[in-house]
Lab assay of single mutants.
Amino acid sequence: MSIQHFRVALIPFFAAFCLPVFAHPETLVKVKDAEDQLGARVGYIELDLNSGKILESFRPEERFPMMSTFKVLLCGAVLSRVDAGQEQLGRRIHYSQNDLVEYSPVTEKHLTDGMTVRELCSAAITMSDNTAANLLLTTIGGPKELTAFLHNMGDHVTRLDRWEPELNEAIPNDERDTTMPAAMATTLRKLLTGELLTLASRQQLIDWMEADKVAGPLLRSALPAGWFIADKSGAGERGSRGIIAALGPDGKPSRIVVIYTTGSQATMDERNRQIAEIGASLIKHW
């Protein structure tokens, strides 16, 4: 067993022997301040990774656009098919120029040779490549099948209805392509620590998230040296922004954090800054 596999296998073990965790309302004060600064709703939840206990939450059962955070769930569904012998990570998928959609920095470079399922998941999570996500959605049967996968996990809230990039439209009061912070946090925890996926697939999923290259201005910008984070960000229309993450000190994750916002007129930089400040408060009061 590799060191990384050992780390993920012992996530519940280490967490069980940690000192009790206590909620700190100071972080919620910052979440509410972010709402004021952005002029928009902000949803927040913080779960203990081992027990699933909610440590703090704000608007945990209000719907927010998922945006690209759905790509972690998508690759979880792909990995479940791999575990069941219905898919192979090494299978190569070929596609054409007509398949390319807006923001496809990886797939646009491989029109000639195609990409493997493993490479597509890596591109979808680490670079948020939209064509990679659409190609992977095709392998599982489309958005409705991802929703069905989530329902089978016990998540009857999260739903995907459309493809990239239309799913980022974020129309107010439109339930399409949305989740709730509580539902997303619980589902992410199941994917990373539950028995739904094999140990190898859980490790692969967290490795992809740990290698995320496009979430630097968010929670990662607030992390002290030595902290662990595996995350996936999302951005959408109407001032929408979000991030889902597993993080913790001492090089291992111990909490799940989900943050979503929508309806702001603020710039992307300002949305990023507010999420980073929430992260800084979380870490300060850990």
Rank of each mutant, 00 (worst) to 15 (best):
N152D: 14
L223T: 08
P224Y: 00
L47R: 02
R255A: 02
P181W: 10
V31C: 00
M115V: 00
K144P: 04
E26T: 01
K144M: 10
E26N: 03
V117T: 02
L197Y: 09
S96N: 04
E119G: 15
A235I: 10
M209I: 05
R162V: 08
I45L: 11
V106I: 00
A77C: 07
Q265I: 15
T138R: 07
L47M: 04
R202D: 09
G114C: 08
E164R: 14
G154S: 08
E87R: 13
P217N: 06
K32A: 07
E119M: 11
S51R: 11
A170E: 02
E270G: 15
N168T: 12
G242H: 04
Q37M: 09
R238S: 05
G43F: 12
L167P: 05
M180W: 03
S122W: 15
I229R: 02
D155G: 12
V29C: 14
L247D: 04
G194Q: 01
T198W: 07
G90R: 10
C75G: 07
A148H: 12
V214P: 01
G234R: 04
K32F: 04
T126L: 11
Y95A: 01
D48N: 07
E195P: 10
R241Q: 14
A34R: 05
V31N: 00
K71M: 01
R91K: 05
L28H: 10
M153H: 11
M180S: 01
A34T: 05
M209V: 13
V106L: 11
N168Y: 08
V72L: 10
N134V: 08
W286L: 06
G279H: 12
A245T: 14
M66F: 06
S51I: 09
L111A: 06
N173D: 02
V78R: 10
G226H: 03
D250A: 05
M180N: 00
G76A: 05
K30D: 10
T69Y: 05
T158R: 09
T179K: 12
A246H: 08
V101I: 06
L191F: 00
D99L: 13
D174A: 11
R241P: 12
M66K: 13
Q97I: 08
D113L: 08
L38V: 02
L74Y: 14
I171H: 03
L28I: 15
T261R: 05
A185S: 05
G142E: 14
T187R: 00
D129Y: 13
P172R: 05
S122N: 11
S233V: 08
I93R: 14
I45T: 02
D129N: 11
S240F: 04
D99A: 13
K53Y: 04
S96I: 03
L137C: 10
V257W: 08
L188G: 07
L100F: 11
G39K: 12
A230R: 03
C75L: 12
W163Q: 13
A276W: 03
A245F: 10
